[in-house]
Nucleic acid binder design. Structure first.
Length: 424
RNA sequence: GGAGAAAUGGCAGAGUGGUCGAAUGCACUGGUCUUGAAAACCAGCGAGGGUCACACCUCCGGGGGUUCGAAUCCCUCUUUCUCCGCCA
Protein backbone atom coordinates (compact mmCIF):
# COMPACT_ATOMS: atom_id res chain seq x y z
CA UNK A 1 0.00 0.00 0.00
CA UNK A 2 0.98 3.58 -0.47
CA UNK A 3 2.27 5.72 2.37
CA UNK A 4 0.08 8.52 3.60
CA UNK A 5 3.01 10.91 3.45
CA UNK A 6 3.53 10.09 -0.23
CA UNK A 7 -0.14 10.64 -0.92
CA UNK A 8 -0.12 13.99 0.84
CA UNK A 9 2.92 15.25 -0.99
CA UNK A 10 2.07 14.05 -4.50
CA UNK A 11 -1.69 14.04 -4.50
CA UNK A 12 -2.26 15.54 -7.96
CA UNK A 13 0.37 13.42 -9.65
CA UNK A 14 -0.86 10.23 -8.03
CA UNK A 15 -4.42 10.82 -9.16
CA UNK A 16 -3.16 11.41 -12.69
CA UNK A 17 -1.03 8.28 -12.69
CA UNK A 18 -3.79 6.12 -11.24
CA UNK A 19 -5.99 7.15 -14.16
CA UNK A 20 -3.65 5.09 -16.36
CA UNK A 21 -5.07 2.01 -14.69
CA UNK A 22 -8.60 3.30 -15.01
CA UNK A 23 -8.86 3.75 -11.28
CA UNK A 24 -11.47 6.46 -11.48
CA UNK A 25 -12.35 6.66 -7.82
CA UNK A 26 -8.83 7.76 -6.94
CA UNK A 27 -9.54 11.40 -6.16
CA UNK A 28 -12.41 10.56 -3.86
CA UNK A 29 -10.52 7.92 -1.92
CA UNK A 30 -7.36 9.99 -1.70
CA UNK A 31 -9.25 12.97 -0.34
CA UNK A 32 -10.78 10.72 2.26
CA UNK A 33 -7.37 9.35 3.19
CA UNK A 34 -6.00 12.82 3.74
CA UNK A 35 -9.05 13.89 5.70
CA UNK A 36 -9.08 10.82 7.93
CA UNK A 37 -5.37 11.01 8.47
CA UNK A 38 -5.64 14.62 9.55
CA UNK A 39 -8.24 13.60 12.10
CA UNK A 40 -6.00 10.76 13.13
CA UNK A 41 -3.11 13.12 13.75
CA UNK A 42 -5.22 15.62 15.68
CA UNK A 43 -6.51 12.83 17.90
CA UNK A 44 -3.02 11.46 18.32
CA UNK A 45 -1.77 14.83 19.51
CA UNK A 46 -4.63 15.21 21.96
CA UNK A 47 -4.00 11.74 23.28
CA UNK A 48 -0.28 12.39 23.61
CA UNK A 49 -0.96 15.53 25.62
CA UNK A 50 -3.36 13.73 27.93
CA UNK A 51 -0.90 10.89 28.44
CA UNK A 52 1.90 13.34 29.06
CA UNK A 53 -0.11 15.06 31.78
CA UNK A 54 -1.12 11.74 33.25
CA UNK A 55 2.48 10.54 33.31
CA UNK A 56 3.58 13.66 35.12
CA UNK A 57 0.88 13.33 37.76
CA UNK A 58 1.62 9.66 38.30
CA UNK A 59 5.24 10.44 38.97
CA UNK A 60 4.19 13.10 41.41
CA UNK A 61 1.95 10.63 43.21
CA UNK A 62 4.86 8.26 43.48
CA UNK A 63 6.99 10.92 45.11
CA UNK A 64 4.23 11.96 47.50
CA UNK A 65 3.67 8.39 48.62
CA UNK A 66 7.35 8.00 49.28
CA UNK A 67 7.30 11.21 51.27
CA UNK A 68 4.34 9.86 53.21
CA UNK A 69 1.99 12.59 52.06
CA UNK A 70 -0.90 10.27 51.38
CA UNK A 71 -3.62 12.90 51.50
CA UNK A 72 -2.03 15.07 48.84
CA UNK A 73 -1.48 12.04 46.70
CA UNK A 74 -5.12 11.03 46.90
CA UNK A 75 -6.11 14.50 45.82
CA UNK A 76 -4.09 14.19 42.64
CA UNK A 77 -5.47 10.73 42.05
CA UNK A 78 -8.86 12.25 41.37
CA UNK A 79 -7.39 14.31 38.57
CA UNK A 80 -5.75 11.30 36.99
CA UNK A 81 -9.03 9.37 37.02
CA UNK A 82 -10.54 12.06 34.84
CA UNK A 83 -7.58 11.95 32.53
CA UNK A 84 -7.94 8.21 32.36
CA UNK A 85 -11.47 8.55 31.02
CA UNK A 86 -10.23 11.02 28.46
CA UNK A 87 -7.38 8.86 27.25
CA UNK A 88 -9.69 5.89 26.95
CA UNK A 89 -12.06 7.84 24.71
CA UNK A 90 -9.23 9.26 22.63
CA UNK A 91 -7.60 5.85 22.24
CA UNK A 92 -10.83 4.44 20.89
CA UNK A 93 -11.26 7.35 18.50
CA UNK A 94 -7.68 7.00 17.36
CA UNK A 95 -8.09 3.34 16.58
CA UNK A 96 -11.24 4.07 14.56
CA UNK A 97 -9.38 6.66 12.48
CA UNK A 98 -6.43 4.35 12.02
CA UNK A 99 -8.64 1.55 10.77
CA UNK A 100 -10.46 3.90 8.44
CA UNK A 101 -7.20 5.12 6.95
CA UNK A 102 -5.90 1.57 6.52
CA UNK A 103 -9.13 0.38 4.91
CA UNK A 104 -8.92 3.25 2.44
CA UNK A 105 -5.27 2.57 1.70
CA UNK A 106 -6.05 -1.07 1.00
CA UNK A 107 -8.31 0.08 -1.83
CA UNK A 108 -5.63 2.08 -3.63
CA UNK A 109 -3.52 0.14 -6.13
CA UNK A 110 0.13 0.86 -6.76
CA UNK A 111 1.05 3.91 -8.83
CA UNK A 112 1.94 2.83 -12.36
CA UNK A 113 5.40 3.69 -13.61
CA UNK A 114 5.62 6.31 -16.37
CA UNK A 115 6.37 3.57 -18.90
CA UNK A 116 3.02 1.86 -18.34
CA UNK A 117 0.82 2.43 -21.39
CA UNK A 118 -2.82 3.36 -20.92
CA UNK A 119 -5.26 0.62 -21.84
CA UNK A 120 -8.17 -1.46 -20.75
CA UNK A 121 -7.25 -5.08 -21.34
CA UNK A 122 -4.53 -7.42 -22.50
CA UNK A 123 -5.25 -6.24 -26.04
CA UNK A 124 -3.55 -2.98 -25.11
CA UNK A 125 -0.35 -4.47 -23.79
CA UNK A 126 2.71 -3.24 -25.59
CA UNK A 127 4.94 -5.78 -27.32
CA UNK A 128 8.46 -4.59 -26.80
CA UNK A 129 10.44 -7.54 -28.11
CA UNK A 130 9.96 -10.71 -30.14
CA UNK A 131 12.48 -13.48 -30.55
CA UNK A 132 12.90 -17.05 -31.72
CA UNK A 133 11.18 -18.61 -34.67
CA UNK A 134 7.85 -20.33 -34.78
CA UNK A 135 8.45 -23.88 -36.04
CA UNK A 136 6.61 -25.43 -38.97
CA UNK A 137 4.92 -28.53 -37.64
CA UNK A 138 4.24 -31.64 -39.67
CA UNK A 139 0.74 -32.52 -40.81
CA UNK A 140 -1.28 -34.01 -38.02
CA UNK A 141 0.57 -32.15 -35.26
CA UNK A 142 -1.32 -32.36 -31.99
CA UNK A 143 -2.06 -30.02 -29.09
CA UNK A 144 -0.24 -30.96 -25.90
CA UNK A 145 -3.20 -32.63 -24.22
CA UNK A 146 -3.39 -35.08 -27.13
CA UNK A 147 0.36 -35.61 -27.04
CA UNK A 148 0.16 -36.21 -23.30
CA UNK A 149 -2.31 -39.00 -23.92
CA UNK A 150 -0.47 -40.43 -26.92
CA UNK A 151 2.81 -40.81 -25.05
CA UNK A 152 1.15 -41.45 -21.67
CA UNK A 153 3.08 -38.70 -19.88
CA UNK A 154 0.32 -36.61 -18.28
CA UNK A 155 -3.01 -37.95 -17.10
CA UNK A 156 -5.68 -35.33 -16.60
CA UNK A 157 -8.48 -37.75 -15.70
CA UNK A 158 -6.55 -39.55 -13.00
CA UNK A 159 -6.21 -36.30 -11.06
CA UNK A 160 -9.99 -35.93 -11.08
CA UNK A 161 -10.24 -39.02 -8.97
CA UNK A 162 -7.68 -37.83 -6.44
CA UNK A 163 -8.72 -34.21 -6.16
CA UNK A 164 -10.72 -32.77 -9.03
CA UNK A 165 -10.30 -30.97 -12.31
CA UNK A 166 -7.10 -28.99 -12.69
CA UNK A 167 -4.87 -31.39 -10.77
CA UNK A 168 -3.00 -33.40 -13.40
CA UNK A 169 -0.84 -36.44 -12.75
CA UNK A 170 2.53 -36.45 -14.51
CA UNK A 171 3.89 -39.86 -15.41
CA UNK A 172 7.12 -41.41 -16.58
CA UNK A 173 9.02 -39.17 -18.96
CA UNK A 174 6.46 -36.42 -18.36
CA UNK A 175 7.28 -36.37 -14.66
CA UNK A 176 11.00 -36.56 -15.41
CA UNK A 177 10.85 -33.74 -17.92
CA UNK A 178 9.12 -31.54 -15.40
CA UNK A 179 11.68 -32.37 -12.73
CA UNK A 180 14.45 -31.69 -15.23
CA UNK A 181 13.02 -28.27 -16.04
CA UNK A 182 12.82 -27.37 -12.36
CA UNK A 183 16.42 -28.37 -11.76
CA UNK A 184 17.54 -26.55 -14.90
CA UNK A 185 15.74 -23.33 -13.93
CA UNK A 186 17.08 -23.44 -10.39
CA UNK A 187 20.61 -23.96 -11.66
CA UNK A 188 20.32 -21.06 -14.10
CA UNK A 189 19.05 -18.83 -11.31
CA UNK A 190 21.74 -19.91 -8.86
CA UNK A 191 24.41 -19.27 -11.48
CA UNK A 192 23.03 -15.75 -11.87
CA UNK A 193 23.45 -15.13 -8.13
CA UNK A 194 20.01 -15.99 -6.79
CA UNK A 195 20.30 -17.89 -3.54
CA UNK A 196 18.11 -20.95 -3.49
CA UNK A 197 15.60 -21.26 -0.64
CA UNK A 198 13.01 -23.85 0.28
CA UNK A 199 10.05 -22.29 1.97
CA UNK A 200 6.75 -23.34 3.51
CA UNK A 201 3.85 -23.96 1.17
CA UNK A 202 1.34 -22.78 3.73
CA UNK A 203 1.17 -19.18 4.85
CA UNK A 204 -0.57 -17.33 7.64
CA UNK A 205 -2.73 -14.25 7.36
CA UNK A 206 0.06 -11.77 8.08
CA UNK A 207 2.10 -13.12 5.18
CA UNK A 208 -0.86 -12.85 2.83
CA UNK A 209 -1.35 -9.24 3.82
CA UNK A 210 2.36 -8.51 3.49
CA UNK A 211 2.56 -9.23 -0.21
CA UNK A 212 -0.95 -8.03 -1.02
CA UNK A 213 -2.93 -11.26 -1.53
CA UNK A 214 -5.06 -10.34 1.46
CA UNK A 215 -7.48 -8.83 1.96
CA UNK A 216 -8.24 -8.15 -1.72
CA UNK A 217 -7.75 -11.57 -3.30
CA UNK A 218 -8.84 -13.91 -0.57
CA UNK A 219 -11.08 -15.93 -2.91
CA UNK A 220 -8.14 -16.85 -5.12
CA UNK A 221 -6.36 -18.86 -2.46
CA UNK A 222 -7.19 -22.19 -0.89
CA UNK A 223 -7.89 -21.64 2.78
CA UNK A 224 -7.41 -24.20 5.50
CA UNK A 225 -10.00 -23.10 8.00
CA UNK A 226 -9.09 -25.29 10.93
CA UNK A 227 -5.64 -23.68 11.20
CA UNK A 228 -6.43 -20.44 9.38
CA UNK A 229 -3.67 -20.97 6.84
CA UNK A 230 -3.58 -20.52 3.08
CA UNK A 231 -1.92 -22.60 0.38
CA UNK A 232 0.54 -20.41 -1.46
CA UNK A 233 -0.57 -19.10 -4.86
CA UNK A 234 3.09 -18.36 -5.68
CA UNK A 235 6.48 -18.60 -3.97
CA UNK A 236 6.51 -14.81 -4.00
CA UNK A 237 4.47 -14.86 -0.80
CA UNK A 238 6.68 -16.94 1.52
CA UNK A 239 9.94 -15.76 -0.02
CA UNK A 240 9.19 -12.03 0.12
CA UNK A 241 7.76 -12.42 3.60
CA UNK A 242 11.12 -13.72 4.78
CA UNK A 243 11.86 -10.02 4.97
CA UNK A 244 8.74 -8.89 6.80
CA UNK A 245 9.57 -6.59 9.73
CA UNK A 246 13.21 -6.37 8.73
CA UNK A 247 15.51 -3.38 8.90
CA UNK A 248 18.35 -3.81 6.40
CA UNK A 249 21.66 -2.07 6.01
CA UNK A 250 22.48 -0.54 2.64
CA UNK A 251 25.30 -3.04 2.32
CA UNK A 252 22.76 -5.88 2.44
CA UNK A 253 21.54 -4.98 -1.05
CA UNK A 254 20.92 -6.58 -3.40
CA UNK A 255 19.11 -9.59 -1.95
CA UNK A 256 18.39 -12.29 -4.51
CA UNK A 257 16.48 -15.52 -3.96
CA UNK A 258 15.10 -18.28 -6.07
CA UNK A 259 12.65 -20.94 -4.98
CA UNK A 260 10.82 -23.83 -6.49
CA UNK A 261 7.32 -24.43 -5.12
CA UNK A 262 4.02 -25.81 -6.21
CA UNK A 263 1.41 -23.07 -6.55
CA UNK A 264 -2.25 -23.42 -5.68
CA UNK A 265 -4.94 -21.25 -7.21
CA UNK A 266 -8.68 -21.59 -6.96
CA UNK A 267 -9.19 -19.86 -10.31
CA UNK A 268 -12.80 -19.36 -9.37
CA UNK A 269 -14.96 -18.79 -12.40
CA UNK A 270 -12.37 -19.44 -15.07
CA UNK A 271 -13.47 -22.70 -16.66
CA UNK A 272 -13.94 -23.22 -20.37
CA UNK A 273 -12.37 -24.44 -23.56
CA UNK A 274 -9.44 -22.02 -23.43
CA UNK A 275 -8.21 -23.57 -20.19
CA UNK A 276 -7.78 -27.08 -21.56
CA UNK A 277 -4.85 -29.28 -20.69
CA UNK A 278 -2.02 -27.48 -18.97
CA UNK A 279 -3.18 -23.99 -19.84
CA UNK A 280 -4.74 -23.25 -16.46
CA UNK A 281 -4.49 -25.45 -13.39
CA UNK A 282 -5.35 -25.40 -9.71
CA UNK A 283 -1.94 -26.78 -8.83
CA UNK A 284 1.18 -26.15 -10.84
CA UNK A 285 4.90 -25.90 -10.34
CA UNK A 286 6.88 -22.72 -10.64
CA UNK A 287 10.39 -21.51 -10.07
CA UNK A 288 10.42 -17.96 -8.82
CA UNK A 289 13.03 -15.23 -8.49
CA UNK A 290 12.70 -12.52 -5.84
CA UNK A 291 14.82 -9.44 -5.27
CA UNK A 292 14.95 -6.90 -2.48
CA UNK A 293 16.56 -3.73 -3.76
CA UNK A 294 17.61 -0.21 -2.96
CA UNK A 295 15.02 2.15 -4.50
CA UNK A 296 17.64 3.68 -6.80
CA UNK A 297 18.48 0.30 -8.25
CA UNK A 298 15.14 -1.42 -8.60
CA UNK A 299 14.39 -0.54 -12.23
CA UNK A 300 17.86 -1.53 -13.24
CA UNK A 301 17.23 -4.84 -11.52
CA UNK A 302 13.90 -5.26 -13.23
CA UNK A 303 15.67 -5.04 -16.58
CA UNK A 304 18.28 -7.48 -15.33
CA UNK A 305 15.57 -9.96 -14.41
CA UNK A 306 13.96 -9.61 -17.83
CA UNK A 307 17.27 -10.28 -19.55
CA UNK A 308 17.93 -13.24 -17.32
CA UNK A 309 14.59 -14.89 -18.11
CA UNK A 310 15.05 -14.09 -21.79
CA UNK A 311 18.30 -16.05 -21.83
CA UNK A 312 16.60 -19.12 -20.40
CA UNK A 313 13.83 -19.04 -22.96
CA UNK A 314 16.32 -18.58 -25.78
CA UNK A 315 18.33 -21.56 -24.55
CA UNK A 316 15.20 -23.68 -24.59
CA UNK A 317 14.62 -22.59 -28.18
CA UNK A 318 11.09 -21.27 -27.73
CA UNK A 319 9.56 -18.48 -29.80
CA UNK A 320 8.67 -15.70 -27.40
CA UNK A 321 7.65 -12.11 -27.00
CA UNK A 322 7.95 -9.63 -24.16
CA UNK A 323 5.01 -7.44 -23.25
CA UNK A 324 4.82 -4.35 -21.15
CA UNK A 325 1.49 -4.57 -19.38
CA UNK A 326 -0.93 -1.72 -19.86
CA UNK A 327 -2.66 0.04 -16.98
CA UNK A 328 -5.79 -2.07 -17.30
CA UNK A 329 -3.88 -5.37 -17.12
CA UNK A 330 -1.38 -4.36 -14.46
CA UNK A 331 -1.66 -6.19 -11.14
CA UNK A 332 -2.93 -4.29 -8.11
CA UNK A 333 0.42 -4.25 -6.33
CA UNK A 334 2.72 -3.71 -9.31
CA UNK A 335 4.20 -0.48 -10.67
CA UNK A 336 5.58 -2.02 -13.86
CA UNK A 337 5.24 -5.55 -15.19
CA UNK A 338 6.79 -7.37 -18.12
CA UNK A 339 5.16 -10.59 -19.26
CA UNK A 340 6.87 -13.27 -21.30
CA UNK A 341 4.73 -15.27 -23.67
CA UNK A 342 5.79 -18.25 -25.71
CA UNK A 343 4.07 -19.37 -28.87
CA UNK A 344 2.27 -22.63 -28.58
CA UNK A 345 2.29 -23.72 -32.16
CA UNK A 346 -0.28 -26.48 -32.12
CA UNK A 347 -2.76 -24.28 -30.27
CA UNK A 348 -1.75 -21.31 -32.38
CA UNK A 349 -1.72 -18.95 -29.42
CA UNK A 350 0.60 -17.15 -27.06
CA UNK A 351 0.88 -18.48 -23.53
CA UNK A 352 2.14 -16.44 -20.57
CA UNK A 353 5.02 -18.20 -18.86
CA UNK A 354 6.54 -15.41 -16.83
CA UNK A 355 5.52 -12.18 -15.24
CA UNK A 356 8.21 -9.91 -13.83
CA UNK A 357 7.26 -6.94 -11.69
CA UNK A 358 8.64 -4.09 -9.70
CA UNK A 359 6.43 -3.38 -6.73
CA UNK A 360 8.57 -0.45 -5.63
CA UNK A 361 7.72 0.19 -1.97
CA UNK A 362 4.09 -0.97 -2.20
CA UNK A 363 4.72 -4.36 -0.64
CA UNK A 364 7.58 -3.08 1.52
CA UNK A 365 5.20 -0.68 3.24
CA UNK A 366 2.90 -3.51 4.22
CA UNK A 367 5.82 -5.75 5.07
CA UNK A 368 7.62 -3.05 7.07
CA UNK A 369 10.69 -3.90 5.04
CA UNK A 370 13.10 -1.01 5.42
CA UNK A 371 16.73 -0.10 5.33
CA UNK A 372 18.88 2.53 6.99
CA UNK A 373 19.80 5.08 4.36
CA UNK A 374 22.89 7.28 4.25
CA UNK A 375 21.23 9.88 6.46
CA UNK A 376 20.60 7.23 9.09
CA UNK A 377 16.85 7.32 8.41
CA UNK A 378 14.66 4.29 7.81
CA UNK A 379 13.42 4.06 4.26
CA UNK A 380 11.23 1.49 2.52
CA UNK A 381 13.06 -0.97 0.29
CA UNK A 382 11.82 -2.05 -3.12
CA UNK A 383 10.63 -5.59 -3.85
CA UNK A 384 10.58 -7.35 -7.19
CA UNK A 385 9.74 -10.80 -8.37
CA UNK A 386 9.28 -12.85 -11.47
CA UNK A 387 8.68 -16.36 -12.67
CA UNK A 388 11.61 -18.22 -14.05
CA UNK A 389 9.58 -20.05 -15.04
CA UNK A 390 6.02 -21.36 -14.70
CA UNK A 391 6.23 -25.01 -15.59
CA UNK A 392 2.97 -26.18 -17.19
CA UNK A 393 2.93 -23.82 -20.13
CA UNK A 394 6.63 -24.28 -20.75
CA UNK A 395 5.96 -28.00 -20.78
CA UNK A 396 2.96 -27.60 -23.07
CA UNK A 397 4.92 -25.48 -25.50
CA UNK A 398 7.92 -27.81 -25.51
CA UNK A 399 5.68 -30.78 -26.24
CA UNK A 400 3.88 -29.02 -29.04
CA UNK A 401 6.76 -27.17 -30.68
CA UNK A 402 9.26 -30.02 -30.57
CA UNK A 403 6.94 -32.80 -31.70
CA UNK A 404 8.03 -34.79 -34.73
CA UNK A 405 6.51 -37.78 -36.40
CA UNK A 406 8.88 -39.95 -34.37
CA UNK A 407 8.39 -38.38 -30.99
CA UNK A 408 9.04 -35.25 -28.97
CA UNK A 409 12.62 -33.97 -29.07
CA UNK A 410 14.12 -32.71 -25.83
CA UNK A 411 16.05 -29.42 -26.06
CA UNK A 412 19.81 -29.97 -25.83
CA UNK A 413 20.23 -28.00 -22.60
CA UNK A 414 17.81 -30.33 -20.84
CA UNK A 415 19.23 -33.67 -21.90
CA UNK A 416 21.78 -33.81 -19.10
CA UNK A 417 18.89 -33.30 -16.68
CA UNK A 418 16.40 -35.72 -18.25
CA UNK A 419 18.78 -38.47 -19.25
CA UNK A 420 16.84 -38.98 -22.50
CA UNK A 421 16.58 -36.91 -25.67
CA UNK A 422 13.24 -37.99 -27.05
CA UNK A 423 9.79 -38.90 -25.77
CA UNK A 424 8.41 -41.68 -27.92
C1' G B 1 -0.99 -35.11 22.63
C1' G B 2 0.57 -34.70 28.38
C1' A B 3 3.83 -32.13 32.31
C1' G B 4 7.09 -28.16 33.42
C1' A B 5 10.21 -23.65 32.26
C1' A B 6 10.94 -19.39 29.46
C1' A B 7 10.30 -15.00 25.81
C1' U B 8 13.94 -7.88 27.47
C1' G B 9 17.89 -3.58 22.36
C1' G B 10 22.27 -6.88 16.62
C1' C B 11 23.84 -10.83 20.37
C1' A B 12 24.49 -12.25 25.54
C1' G B 13 22.21 -10.82 29.91
C1' A B 14 20.43 -7.65 34.59
C1' G B 15 16.01 -5.71 36.09
C1' U B 16 9.74 -8.68 40.22
C1' G B 17 4.91 -2.10 41.05
C1' G B 18 7.14 4.42 40.94
C1' U B 19 12.38 9.48 37.58
C1' C B 20 13.48 2.15 33.46
C1' G B 21 13.50 3.07 27.05
C1' A B 22 15.78 -0.11 30.32
C1' A B 23 22.36 -1.84 34.02
C1' U B 24 26.58 -4.50 32.22
C1' G B 25 29.46 -7.14 28.50
C1' C B 26 30.22 -8.18 23.33
C1' A B 27 29.43 -6.42 18.47
C1' C B 28 29.05 -1.91 15.61
C1' U B 29 30.28 3.62 14.41
C1' G B 30 33.43 7.99 15.18
C1' G B 31 37.83 9.88 17.63
C1' U B 32 42.78 9.76 20.40
C1' C B 33 47.28 6.96 20.23
C1' U B 34 50.31 4.07 16.25
C1' U B 35 54.61 4.01 10.24
C1' G B 36 50.20 0.61 9.74
C1' A B 37 47.25 -2.93 12.34
C1' A B 38 45.98 -4.81 17.08
C1' A B 39 45.44 -3.36 22.09
C1' A B 40 44.13 0.60 25.27
C1' C B 41 41.32 4.98 26.16
C1' C B 42 37.18 8.63 25.02
C1' A B 43 32.42 9.31 22.75
C1' G B 44 28.16 7.49 20.23
C1' C B 45 24.98 3.45 19.32
C1' G B 46 16.92 0.21 19.09
C1' A B 47 12.22 1.36 16.55
C1' G B 48 7.61 4.08 15.34
C1' G B 49 4.56 8.62 15.71
C1' G B 50 5.20 13.90 16.17
C1' U B 51 8.14 18.72 15.31
C1' C B 52 11.52 23.34 10.90
C1' A B 53 14.12 21.60 15.16
C1' C B 54 12.99 20.57 20.24
C1' A B 55 9.21 19.13 23.48
C1' C B 56 6.08 15.19 23.88
C1' C B 57 3.82 10.14 23.04
C1' U B 58 4.20 4.74 22.11
C1' C B 59 6.88 0.02 22.03
C1' C B 60 10.51 -5.10 27.03
C1' G B 61 6.86 -11.97 22.04
C1' G B 62 1.08 -10.58 20.35
C1' G B 63 -3.69 -9.15 22.49
C1' G B 64 -6.62 -7.92 26.82
C1' G B 65 -6.98 -6.63 32.16
C1' U B 66 -5.67 -4.75 37.39
C1' U B 67 -3.44 0.09 39.19
C1' C B 68 -2.87 7.05 39.96
C1' G B 69 1.53 4.29 37.91
C1' A B 70 3.36 -2.25 34.73
C1' A B 71 9.29 -4.94 31.61
C1' U B 72 7.64 -6.25 36.70
C1' C B 73 0.89 -8.55 38.92
C1' C B 74 -3.53 -11.30 36.36
C1' C B 75 -5.93 -13.59 31.84
C1' U B 76 -5.23 -15.28 26.90
C1' C B 77 -2.74 -16.45 22.35
C1' U B 78 1.86 -17.53 19.88
C1' U B 79 6.72 -19.25 19.93
C1' U B 80 11.07 -21.63 22.16
C1' C B 81 13.40 -25.13 25.58
C1' U B 82 13.31 -29.73 28.88
C1' C B 83 10.90 -34.45 30.06
C1' C B 84 7.14 -38.17 28.49
C1' G B 85 4.14 -40.19 24.37
C1' C B 86 3.76 -40.75 19.01
C1' C B 87 6.31 -40.69 14.45
C1' A B 88 8.96 -39.90 8.44
Amino acid sequence: MLQVATIRENKIKIIEQLAVRNFTDAENIINQVIEKDTSRRTTQTQLDDALSESNKLSKEIGKLFQAGEVQKANLIKEKTSQLKELTKTLTEELSVFENEVTDLLYQIPNIPNELVPAGNSEEDNETIFEGGTIPKLHNGALPHWELAKKYDIIDFELGNKITGAGFPVYKGKGAKLQRALIAYFLDKNSDAGYQEVQVPHLINEASGIGTGQLPDKEGQMYHIGIDNLYLIPTAEVPVTNLYRNVLLKESDFPILHTAYTPCFRREAGSYGAHVRGLNRLHQFDKVEIVRIEHPDKSYNSLNGMVNHVKKIIVELGLPYRILRLCGGDLGFTSALTYDFEVFSTAQNRWLEISSISNFESFQANRLKLRFKNKDGKSELAHTLNGSSLALPRVLATLLENFQTKNGIKIPDVLVKYTGFDIID
